[in-house]
């Protein structure tokens, strides 16, 4: 399942590609929305680990603009609900993710991101 949560943890790892290699940019993303169990603890636990701007921008790319540009200090219910939806309920089933730096493209097939590289591309 490529959800925005997973996507927020993936960076390009082509040999020598070490800066501006995150976040990967979605191309031709086919999206499915699926309900997930809401869990406040999970969201609060995970919030400090997120790259916020990357999450907001990538959500926007997929057509969701519910998140504020800055991470709020007060975590009210509406914010947590939106965060839950963005992180866990938007599934990218098919498409690809392109590195903003070296333009390497990582395919997404059947909901699974393929981060494998050919031998000569591995750092």
């Amino acid at each position: 399942m490529v959800r925005l949560l997973t996507h927020n943890l993936l960076a390009c790892h082509v040999k020598g590609c070490t800066s501006n290699n995150f976040p990967l940019q979605f191309q031709n993303a086919q999206i499915e929305l699926r309900e997930a169990d809401f869990n406040t603890d999970f969201l609060k636990n995970f919030l400090p680990k997120l790259e916020w701007k990357a999450l907001v921008d990538s959500a926007k790319d997929l057509g969701d603009t519910s998140l504020p540009l800055e991470q709020p200090e007060m975590l009210d219910d509406e914010f947590l609900k939106n965060l839950h939806h963005v992180l866990l309920e938007i599934h990218v089933e098919e498409g690809s993710m392109t590195c903003p730096n070296c333009k390497h493209s990582y395919p997404i097939s059947n909901g699974i991101p393929n981060m494998l590289l050919a031998e000569h591309e591995i750092g």
Partner: peptide, 18 residues
């Protein structure tokens, strides 16, 4: 259990952020 699955060698692609 919501297992987020990534097709990769070891932790390639995840290492930087994790």
């Amino acid at each position: 259990v919501a297992v987020h699955t990534i097709n990769t060698s070891l932790t390639a692609g995840l290492h930087q952020r994790l």
